[in-house]
């Protein structure tokens, strides 16, 4: 699934003051089957951008073209927190998107169980979310997003709160799923190293009001990775300084 974002603009009301412009002019073309990281300083509108792509927020102006048009009406987001419903077991959390699509409860649970098996979470099917470790809960939330069978996944820094090992394992699972299904993944993060390590492309956003500073393609070379990391940091620091100067 290819996603083209053109001249996207979004602002929020600001208690009697001028509207707070978060996204000023976003232009981005995410090629089908790519893992694209969006990196930018806090408050630059990364999550807002994901919500607009998912259809949860409306942009003030601009366009998002998704091709081919998805069979499923929604593009699932994997959130920063796992956001599993605490009153549902892991199995029923995974069956939830299918229940919404009027799939019978039994059929939905069979499909959810198959997915749990794939994710090695089958033995936790009847656990409630509070009984899972952070990593397992995030894996289950990825499973819930996958039941929609969308060709695209949006990830809002979902592994920020899990330890390094769990994060690495979760990334491996996501990459496996991506290559299995040819999914397009848009991954929002603060972590420059993660972005370089896992992405096919990296979009660097400026500080608010944000626009895309660079759309970088990392190469699989360790030496250039550190240079790239430095370059991205320079871009971020520079954009923050510009934003602060504009404010003062």
């Amino acid at each position: 699934m290819e996603i083209k974002i053109k001249e996207l603009r979004k602002s929020f009301p600001n208690k009697g003051l001028a509207p707070l412009v978060v996204l000023r002019n976003i232009n981005l073309a995410v090629p089908a089957g790519n893992f694209v990281s969006i990196i930018g300083p806090s408050g630059c509108g990364k999550t807002t951008l994901l919500k607009i792509i998912a259809g949860l927020e409306k942009a003030d102006a601009g366009d998002i073209e998704i091709s081919p048009e998805s069979v499923s009406p929604s593009i699932p987001i994997i959130w920063q927190e796992h956001r599993l419903f605490p009153w549902r077991t892991v199995l029923k959390n995974l069956a939830f998107p299918l229940e919404l699509r009027k799939v019978g409860r039994e059929q939905a649970e069979v499909a959810a169980r198959q997915l749990l098996q794939k994710l090695n979470l089958e033995e936790f099917a009847n656990y409630y979310p509070w009984q899972l470790s952070g990593g397992m809960a995030h894996l289950a939330s990825i499973g819930r997003a996958l039941t929609i069978n969308s060709q695209c996944l949006l990830m809002d820094e979902p592994f920020a709160s899990v330890d390094y090992q769990a994060k690495h394992a979760l990334f491996r699972r996501v990459k496996e799923i991506q290559s299995e299904k040819g999914s397009t993944i848009i991954y929002v993060t603060h972590d420059v190293r993660d972005a370089i390590q896992y992405s096919d492309r990296i979009a660097v956003l400026s500080a608010r009001p944000s626009s895309v500073l660079e759309f970088i393609k990392p190469t699989p070379n360790d030496l250039s990775h550190s240079a790239l990391e430095e370059h991205i940091w320079e871009l971020l620091i520079e954009s923050r300084e510009v934003a602060q100067n504009n404010l003062s």
Binding site: L56, S72, S74, I77, E81, F96, P97, L100
Partner: peptide, 10 residues
């Protein structure tokens, strides 16, 4: 946030 998840899932 739960409502947002549900909306996102359709």
């Amino acid at each position: 946030r739960w409502i947002e998840v549900a909306k996102n899932l359709g």
